[in-house]
């Protein structure tokens, strides 16, 4: 088994790219790998509490909560990007970390595979 670090900047309920990143993380954890998911830019919105589930909207918060419980998945949002969007610790889902970008770099250097997905 190995460790996969994914970095994603794409927005929540925008393009389907953030959905792709979470589904890939889910598949990797199911296969026994460890996954670190780093979110910057608009992707930081995925860390927010009280996201609502609508029938025609993609809803990733539930999948993220399940992945956090596995203990093989870490999700971290960029502190600056979050603050720029008015997101502080109390606005963040249980189990979602907030760090500056050096967390992403450290994760990438200790990973077997690194997958950086840009914006939109």
């Amino acid at each position: 088994m190995g460790k996969l670090t994914i970095g994603c900047f794409s927005s929540l309920v925008g393009s389907m790219t953030l959905d792709f990143a979470v589904k890939l993380a889910e598949a990797a954890v199911k296969k026994g790998h460890e996954v670190d998911l780093w979110l910057s830019g608009n992707a930081t919105m995925l860390g927010k509490t009280r996201q609502s589930k609508f029938r025609d909207y993609s809803y990733l918060a539930g999948t993220v909560e399940e992945l956090i419980k596995t203990g093989k998945f870490q999700i971290t949002i960029c502190e600056a990007c979050a603050k720029a969007r008015g997101i502080d610790k109390e606005d963040t889902m249980e189990g979602v970390n907030i760090h500056s970008m050096d967390w992403y770099l450290a994760s990438a250097f200790s990973a077997d595979r690194v997958f950086h997905i840009g914006g939109e």
Binding site: G2, L4, K23, L24, E26, A27, A28, K30, K31, H33, D112, R113, V114, F115, H116, I117, G118
Partner: peptide, 19 residues
């Protein structure tokens, strides 16, 4: 391939990934 196949591809068949 499906998502599980994609995980195997990333870990077993390739080293570097570009989006």
């Amino acid at each position: 391939i499906n998502y599980e196949g994609l995980v195997d591809l990333i870990f077993n068949d390739y080293e570097k990934i570009i989006w």
